[in-house]
């Protein structure tokens, strides 16, 4: 496999990697950068556990070849909190108990983060549409919706 140097912004820091450009971004994040917060659930873009932001848009990183992120800004769950400073979405997930096994949670939070970045006052329907690509087998989704609605409120202040 021919390697290629790919330059991109990873969690606001410039990075350069010499790797197979066809390798999935998910694998590169986990294996080359040890960013284990992004999870592999299906490898086919069906479950959303590997959701990251590329230039502010939520994508399934399992479907993105590394070569595609040349010059882009990639944001993972690790970028949302800083020490004990958590993003209001994360605080809302904790408060509303929107966490069970936690495997879908990083992807879920990233999809919510992308939504609120682009649409700070979403309707309930817009929330459901934005999260519809993130599967959760534990929660029944109710607490997740409540958490995102709470985050909308706390981001207003």
């Amino acid at each position: 496999m021919k390697k290629q140097v790919v330059n991109f912004l990873l969690n606001s820091e410039p990075v350069k990697i010499d790797a197979d450009p066809a390798e999935s971004l998910l694998n590169v994040l986990r294996e080359n950068f040890n960013l284990f917060g992004t999870k592999a659930g299906c490898g086919r873009g069906e479950c959303g556990a590997c959701t990251v932001l590329i230039d502010g848009m939520p994508v399934n990183s399992c479907l993105v070849p590394l070569g595609k992120v040349e010059g882009c800004s990639v944001e993972t769950i690790e970028n949302l909190s800083s020490g004990e400073q958590y993003h209001p979405i994360q605080e809302a997930f904790v408060e509303k108990g929107a966490i069970q096994c936690g495997f879908c949670t990083p992807g879920m939070v990233m999809s919510a983060y992308a939504l609120l970045k682009n649409n700070p006052q979403p309707t309930s329907l817009e929330i459901k549409t934005a999260i519809s690509g993130n599967l959760c087998r534990c929660s029944g989704y109710k607490q997740i919706e409540e958490a995102i609605l709470l985050a909308v409120e706390s981001l207003k202040d």
Binding site: L35, F36, G37, T38, K39, A40, T76, I77, E78, L80, S81, Y86, Q90, F93, V94, G97, I99, G102, F103, T105, P106, V109
Partner: peptide, 21 residues
């Protein structure tokens, strides 16, 4: 009482370790 989950912060920040991590 509804005390906060012991694993909540780890899980919501992506730092929770699953076996593959």
């Amino acid at each position: 009482t509804s005390v906060q989950r012991k694993d909540a912060i780890e899980k919501v920040t992506g730092s929770a370790q699953f076996i593959e991590d």
